[in-house]
Design a protein around this nucleic acid. Structure first.
Lengths: 208, 208
DNA sequence: CAAGTTTTTGACCGGATGGTCAATAACGTA
DNA sequence: TACGTTATTGACCATCCGGTCAAAAACTTG
């Protein structure tokens, strides 16, 4: 019997995500969000609770999406585990060097969080650990396949790849171009081989 | 004949840096800055022009300091070029896993900048290139020393290290501890060797 | 069609924010 | 010691912010 909502929650969160990705949490105004979502201030408030809570929702969505994407890229596939990581990193290099000025909400949350207890921090940290877990799983498969030394530290390598990805994101934001970012990704992958990897055939040759 | 200033500019910029490092640009209030620097609002305004301009000054200082530090760490020394990079990365691992919640102004500027034309962006990008240049120089020495393959792409490796450093900073901010961060640094360094490097003797063994 | 529940709307609010102004103080110089 | 110049001080301001309130609207069910 209650009056039904005129909006779909997930759509609203999506629109809000966009705003936050462009402006960040502190710099985004409630007005920006109202304009982007099409909801009234009060409706927003009823449904989510406030700017910060809405950001948190968006952050969770971002985290889930990132997890899903990496999971898909590194998960069961025809390609060998190490090849999947390679493909993923190269894809990230392209994504991060795209022209839009967005920064992942995860990174934003990390930077804009006010302390370790901040939900922004805890959510983000959990997300990072989850991501590392996925990498670790894939690396473990590689090790079992004999594509990685028996004594390789799969856990720290996993975190390493998360770090590299984050760094690439920041560099992309700084304006580093696709070619360089791709070269960086290929460099990063050398950790897995000891020997230099064959050049990517679908990407331009690395340049400084 | 004019009344002399009661403060030293560089001190003020330093104090402001602290505030910005903790709160960021958008979240830092003029009041925070007034309190931290000890100057009155108007004096601040006279000397620097406003919050953003003051941040820019702080950012430049941060950039110079970072450049100086890396330059010193990778520059002329007794140690071999590759050993210097190793030492620097390990030192960064410790610094980034320290308990204070600070984020470098460079990273903040990157995230809080409003566009490619934003002075925050241009300054940061220049800083990154400068940093990469220092790495490149060191790597070039290593190559001449025969410690790096003749065909190693020194330029992209340099950017790679900047990316890794940035990523480590973010992970440290997320609460990743010293042990893990050190392991990540050691992983990152494997790029240079092809073979696994000897474990650091002055650091705890890596763990996931 | 009336009751009941929840959303929506739009006006409203206290407070904080970045920035400004005008008066005063402090200093070097003549 | 008086002057000119600049720094400092503290009050002041318009605006915008996140958030709230109360009334109207919309829909389902009985």
């Amino acid at each position: 019997m209650p009056r039904p909502r005129k909006f779909v929650e997930s759509d609203v969160v999506s629109s809000a995500s966009e705003v936050f990705a462009v402006h960040g949490l502190a710099a985004a105004t409630l007005d920006d969000l109202v304009r982007a979502t099409g909801l009234g201030k009060q409706s927003l408030y009823n449904a989510f609770g406030g700017k910060r809570e809405l950001f948190l929702r968006a952050l969770s969505e971002d985290r889930e999406e990132a997890t899903r994407a990496v999971s898909e890229a590194l998960g069961h596939d025809e390609a060998l585990p190490l090849e999947r990581i390679r493909g993923h990193l190269l894809r990230m290099a392209i994504e991060f060097s795209s022209s839009d000025r967005r920064v992942s909400l995860t990174t934003r949350a990390l930077v804009e969080s006010t302390g370790e207890e901040d939900p922004l921090s805890t959510t983000t940290k959990a997300g990072i650990e989850q991501l590392a877990g996925i990498y670790a799983q894939c690396l473990e498969h590689a090790r079992e396949h004999g594509d990685l030394p028996e004594d390789a530290n799969v856990q720290s390598l996993a975190v390493y790849f998360v770090a590299v990805t984050r760094g690439m994101e920041l560099l992309g934001r700084a304006g580093v171009g696709r070619g360089v970012l791709t070269a960086v990704a290929l460099d990063a992958l050398r950790v897995l081989h000891g020997q230099r990897m064959e050049e990517a055939d679908d990407f331009p040759p690395t340049r400084g």
